[in-house]
Computed example of a mutant assay.
Amino acid sequence: MRAVYRVLAYLLALEVVVQAAAIAWALFGLTTWIENGGVLDKAGIESESVVFDGVTGFMVHGLNGTLIVPALGLLFLISSFFARFAGAIAWAGAAFALVVVQVALGIFAHTVPALGMLHGAVALGLLVVALVAARKSAAPAAPATESASTGAHAAPLV
């Protein structure tokens, strides 16, 4: 089950990269479109008539952030109960908590744009937590018994 845990942790980290790439594509496409004379206003957004290279990035970012990332975070947390190594549940719990905060920030940043800064910072935190969890799941278990021949404690492999 450690392998499932590790794969889910890496997938969660990969989704953070996908999210960053999608929103960058969308914003660069939008600014290029505006610089070339495009106009964006509330009516254009509501009519969905605004089309530019990168508009799909907004859709990818929104759907990934509200569906895929939370689903992976929940599966990661569930898998942590079966991974059976020290810290598995704590790392997955931290990742899941960051996902919950991330989704909430993504929703509330539409009302309070300054929360977008925290949205980006929490994404980086999620990336780090997911990568650390994946690495910890790959580490060999430290021997817990004394060496039979010497009576000394065996040193953990590093």
Results as ranks from 00 to 15, higher is better:
M1N: 02
A3P: 00
Y5L: 12
Y5I: 11
Y5R: 08
R6C: 05
L8T: 00
L11E: 00
L11D: 00
L12H: 14
V17Q: 09
Q19A: 07
A20S: 05
A22Y: 07
L30C: 01
N36Q: 13
V39N: 12
V39L: 12
G44Y: 04
S47L: 10
S49D: 15
G54K: 13
T56Y: 02
G57E: 04
G57H: 08
N64T: 05
L67C: 01
A71N: 12
A71L: 15
L72P: 03
F76C: 08
F82A: 15
F82G: 08
F82M: 14
F85K: 04
A86F: 02
A88R: 03
A88V: 02
A90T: 06
W91A: 12
W91I: 02
F96H: 11
A97C: 11
V101S: 11
Q102F: 09
V103M: 12
A104T: 11
A104N: 11
A104L: 15
A104Y: 06
L105S: 07
I107R: 06
A109D: 06
H110P: 00
V112G: 03
A114K: 10
L115D: 09
A121Y: 02
V122P: 06
A123M: 13
L124H: 05
L124Y: 08
G125E: 06
V132F: 11
A134M: 05
R135K: 06
A139Y: 00
P140Y: 07
P143T: 04
E146M: 15
A148D: 03
S149E: 10
T150D: 10
G151V: 14
A152V: 14
H153Y: 05
A154D: 10
A155S: 14
A155D: 13
